Amino acid sequence: MRQIILDTETTGLRVEDGNRILEIAAVEMIDRKLSAPERHLHRYINPERDSEEGALNVHGLTTEFLADKPKFADIVDEFLQFVAGAELIIHNAPFDVGFLDEELGRLGRGRIGDYVAGVVDTLKMAKDNFPGKRNSLDALCDRYEIDRSGRTLHGALIDCELLSEVYLAMTRGQDSLLIDFLADGGSGDPVADAARRAARKPRIVTRPNAEEAAEHAAYLDELDKIVKGDCLWRSYEPKPVTEAEAA
């Protein structure tokens, strides 16, 4: 699967006020692995207007710096070719999609949804997973222990790189059943696969010690809060190893 982690910086928060895109970054990921840097897209854009003071304080890209940069019309073909057919991963997707749709609309090029396979909003994912908690990109980096020390000002490229790590952390395990099946040599023939599994040696299972079981229980407590009840994994809780058993 080809996915594009995407971020923009803009002259202000409201597209309705005539604000424009002034930086765009798109980082390619194929089958949950980031492509080499040369496969990424990063462009500064002349927005043909000044940034609002609040936005300038966030991204630090001055009108003077952007004056000799290409306009969106100059990079639109390159951008659309890069994202074509991919699934976009965006934090607070309605914001960026709104600006992209406005820029494309100015050029009579339709909407971003006309060119991509879909859009994943990691902010919505985070709110679903961590209701009532802060779910900004910075907060998620801290929650997943992702180093963001290099992020002093907001920049589209570094935000994409951080978001790629956050997304992988948030979705870790979603494909585990498929991955296990493929790694196990599943052929797609249920009879042959069942016979092969029956013939192999049993797996060695190591039971958790008391400390590991306590950490696991604390994690399940957090899941209970999210689902507002007992999570499914409660029925699979391991029993801690006693000192007598360990001896």
Score class of each variant (00 low, 15 high):
16 E>Q: 13
74 D>R: 01
127 K>G: 00
29 M>L: 12
121 D>C: 15
100 L>R: 09
42 H>G: 00
25 A>E: 02
44 Y>H: 07
61 L>E: 02
117 A>W: 06
74 D>L: 04
80 L>Y: 07
134 R>M: 01
47 P>V: 11
86 A>Y: 09
126 A>I: 14
52 E>P: 05
40 H>V: 05
78 E>M: 07
20 R>G: 09
115 Y>I: 10
78 E>F: 02
38 E>M: 07
14 R>W: 10
123 L>Y: 15
96 D>L: 07
84 A>C: 03
57 N>R: 15
126 A>K: 10
17 D>Q: 04
121 D>R: 08
34 L>H: 12
54 G>Y: 11
83 V>N: 05
104 L>S: 12
76 V>E: 08
62 T>E: 05
53 E>P: 04
131 P>A: 04
69 K>A: 08
98 G>T: 01
134 R>S: 05
30 I>E: 15
39 R>K: 10
69 K>R: 11
132 G>W: 04
109 R>W: 00
90 I>Y: 12
74 D>W: 06
92 N>T: 02
87 E>A: 04
88 L>M: 00
79 F>D: 01
107 L>V: 05
35 S>N: 00
28 E>S: 14
65 F>W: 08
77 D>L: 09
20 R>M: 06
67 A>V: 00
37 P>Q: 03
78 E>D: 11
38 E>F: 12
109 R>E: 03
41 L>N: 10
133 K>T: 12
132 G>Y: 08
55 A>Q: 09
94 P>M: 09
97 V>N: 03
102 E>D: 15
37 P>R: 01
13 L>A: 06
20 R>F: 09
58 V>W: 13
63 T>W: 11
97 V>D: 08
92 N>S: 08
86 A>L: 09
65 F>E: 04
44 Y>K: 02
34 L>D: 09
60 G>Q: 03
137 L>Y: 08
54 G>L: 14
48 E>R: 14
47 P>K: 12
62 T>I: 04
46 N>A: 09
129 N>D: 14
102 E>H: 15
129 N>I: 00
132 G>R: 07
117 A>Q: 14
26 A>C: 13
71 K>S: 01
54 G>A: 15
133 K>C: 11
32 R>A: 14
52 E>A: 11
16 E>V: 13
70 P>N: 11
73 A>E: 13
48 E>P: 10
84 A>M: 08
